[in-house]
């Protein structure tokens, strides 16, 4: 049934659930009596009257958005099934495309790394930390899940403002939010944590006033999906990492556990990202 009525049910019947799950004798209480009596049936009839009349209208437009029961952000807002399925398909296609591009960049990076080593012979410590094609996350379901999370983050006013206010070349690791790299191998927890911290950081660009928000939503929805990919792929690009001090990403793999433990304080992450220096 619709989320609303489901929630309604679970809260209304939460006592029953408790009995069911952990009560030592679910039968001794209302349940068994309900079986031969009216109490239970009556309640069920109530539910019955209520549910069907409720969902057609009350259902939130984004009721099929996965991963959460609550009304969700503007992703997956389109409520017609045809579009939903097409969006899903498009997302998969984009992920595939990204995968190819990312792989190419990694290969290019590996190659030029070797070149440089030959010429200068000094970059050995760095080299071992660069991701290689073998360490790439290729599980489609994982990538899709991550892409969705990223899209949720990017589909915000804050992100939009951030992108406008801070051009890419001015962003500094540790200070500015950086989209987590979906192609790296991370534990589920580590990834979710990175996303969380990234979103926390993005909130710094939340628009100041509340009015006019609804108006802007539509515009934002239009822009995102595509240029999103572009920004993300920027991550592993080699030149940037060479001429800036942005070693932060190299540190991420072995910081996984640290991040897992640091329960969501943004300041800590800034710290971890700075440590290599």
């Amino acid at each position: 049934m619709s989320f609303r009525s489901r929630n309604g049910r679970s809260s209304a019947d939460s006592k029953e659930y408790e009995n069911r799950n952990c009560g030592p004798s679910p039968w001794s209480q209302c349940r068994k009596r309900g079986a031969d009596g009216n109490l239970r049936n009556k309640r069920e009839e109530d539910n019955n009257d209520e549910k069907p009349s409720k969902h057609p209208d009350d259902r939130p437009a984004n009721f099929t958005t996965p991963e959460s029961d609550g009304p969700l952000s503007r992703c997956g807002r389109q409520s017609d099934w045809g579009s939903q399925v097409e969006n899903e398909e498009a997302l998969i296609k984009d992920v595939h495309k990204d995968m190819h591009r990312y792989r190419r960049r990694l290969l290019a990076a590996e190659f030029s790394q070797r070149e440089r080593k030959n010429s200068s012979g000094s970059s050995d410590s760095r080299e071992s930390l660069l991701p290689t094609t073998g360490e790439m996350e290729t599980d489609e379901s994982v990538l899709l899940r991550r892409q969705k999370q990223i899209n949720y983050g990017k589909n915000t006013l804050a992100y939009d403002r951030y992108v406008k206010e801070v051009p890419k070349h001015l962003r500094q690791p540790g200070i500015h939010p950086k989209t987590p790299n979906k192609f790296k191998k991370y534990s589920r927890r580590s990834w979710d944590q990175q996303i969380k911290l990234w979103k926390v950081k993005l909130h710094a660009w939340d628009p100041p006033a509340q009015d006019g928000q609804e108006k802007d939503l539509n515009d934002i929805e239009e822009l995102d999906l595509d240029d999103v990919m572009d920004i993300e792929l920027d991550f592993p690009s080699l030149p940037e990492s060479l001429n800036s001090t942005s070693l932060s990403r190299h540190t991420v793999p072995f910081l996984e556990d640290v991040q897992d433990d640091c329960a969501g304080t943004p300041s800590k992450v800034m710290k971890t990202e700075d440590t290599p220096e």
């Binding site: 009721f63 099929t64 996965p66 939903q84 399925v85 899903e88 379901s141």
Partner: peptide, 13 residues
């Protein structure tokens, strides 16, 4: 199916 997975849009319905 989409990409060999059930269509998410239909799951709740």
């Amino acid at each position: 199916k989409v990409n060999n997975m059930p269509m998410v849009a239909l799951v709740h319905p």
